[in-house]
Amino acid sequence: MSLLLPLEDSPYRLDEFGPIFILGCPRSGTTFLSKCLAAVDGLEEFVGVLAPPRIMHLIGSCEDKPYQKELMNCIRDVFWQSFWRRRYYRHERLLQLLQKNISIAQFMAAPSIDGTKFCYKEPFLCFAAEEFANYFPNARFIHIIRDGRDNADSLERTYPDALSDEVLSDGFLAGNKNSEIGMYRENNGVCVPWWVAKGSEAEFIELPQYGKFIWMWKEMVGRARNVKAVDKSRYFEIRYEDFVKDPMEWAGRILNFLDVPMNERVRKKLKSAFASSIGISLNNQKELQRGIAQKVAGELLAELGYTE
């Protein structure tokens, strides 16, 4: 039953407007995909500042279901406030116009939320994807997956301190946002991320940083794919390599999945796709490192078609 409440007091309605969630490890193409979808007519795209990574870790690791639900209620409230304000506040619409996500005609039109969709991109939502799928029964999920070996290589170069021995050996650093750990437990003076299964601490600690990133990739991809167990009809999986090689084809499939039309603004953004980083770990990582990737996540790599 719908309540006749003002918009600002109606966060319960969020599931009527999408929502759409973009899943994928950091450095796997989520930002490019998100920017393209931001140009879709009637789709309001937001990024990770609304629900920080630490909250995603907390939801994914939480075994207290009532507490987990309250966390989801809080996230829904934040999402809703951002969504309706985007549609009704003039300065918000102006920013979308300047970013070329809407046309002048759309900027001048009377504000409305009818026929619109909420879209959110946060890579670490992967850790809470199943919980989001259960909480938002109308939500759809687009999961972009990159070769874990290339993904780990890019993470190691882009975030040189994340999952490093120095960070994992210092509780203060491990609790920092960019450590990519979330919650952790101590094991022989090392802060082991919560997403490392109990009993596997020693194996994880012994890995080089590249291997730890492969481990994180395996966990994030696996957890995001759990959405299929909730409702496979609401889950769309795409490989990064396929998307950047033929962005127009795959964008068409994604938009069809979301039941939204293509437009010229989306086409223009798709033109910035580039495939030069495919297979980059072959040049940057030694054979030993690639061997570690095979040992840590070989089964998943093969399942996804990432073989030598």
Rank of each mutant, 00 (worst) to 15 (best):
A38C: 09
L3A: 12
A273E: 01
R93P: 01
S2V: 14
K218F: 08
N256D: 15
D170I: 04
L288M: 15
D165A: 04
A38N: 09
I254A: 05
M262R: 06
Q289N: 15
F127I: 08
P137W: 01
C119N: 03
E219C: 07
S179E: 02
I102Y: 03
Q99W: 12
C126I: 04
D9Y: 15
G148D: 01
D114F: 14
D231G: 05
K218R: 12
D231K: 09
K100Y: 14
L23A: 03
D259I: 06
V190T: 06
C126V: 03
T31E: 03
K121F: 05
A139V: 04
E303V: 02
L33S: 04
H143L: 02
V221A: 06
W194R: 07
L4S: 13
E237N: 08
S200M: 13
T307W: 06
E92P: 05
P52A: 04
E44N: 12
Y67V: 12
P193R: 03
K245C: 09
L304G: 03
C62Q: 02
E201W: 00
I292K: 04
E156R: 13
K198C: 11
R239A: 08
P26N: 00
E299Y: 13
P123F: 00
A251W: 09
V190A: 01
A197E: 14
R239N: 06
V40L: 06
P160F: 00
R13W: 11
I142N: 03
G189E: 05
L301V: 07
R157I: 11
Y12D: 15
N284V: 13
T31Q: 03
A224S: 14
V192E: 02
K198D: 11
S276P: 10
A38H: 09
K232R: 12
R290P: 08
G148A: 04
D15Y: 07
Q99T: 10
K117L: 11
L125R: 12
C62W: 03
E92Q: 11
R85Q: 11
D147C: 11
P19N: 02
E156L: 15
F274P: 12
K269C: 10
E303F: 02
S276C: 11
E287L: 07
S272N: 13
N138T: 11
D246C: 11
A133K: 05
G291Q: 01
R54E: 15
F204T: 07
D170Q: 04
M216F: 08
V192R: 01
K69E: 12
K271H: 14
E201A: 00
W84K: 03
E249F: 14
V47Q: 12
K245M: 10
K271Q: 14
E16K: 12
A152Y: 07
R54W: 13
L155H: 10
A110H: 10
P261I: 05
S10Q: 04
E287M: 06
V266M: 01
E264M: 10
I22H: 05
R54V: 13
L94K: 14
L33P: 02
Q294K: 15
L125I: 13
A229P: 10
N256T: 13
N187K: 15
E206W: 08
E219V: 12
T158I: 09
V296M: 00
L163K: 02
C25S: 09
E16D: 09
R239F: 08
G199P: 12
M183G: 14
M108F: 13
R140G: 02
R267P: 09
A202K: 15
K232L: 06
K212H: 01
D147E: 06
F257L: 06
D41C: 06
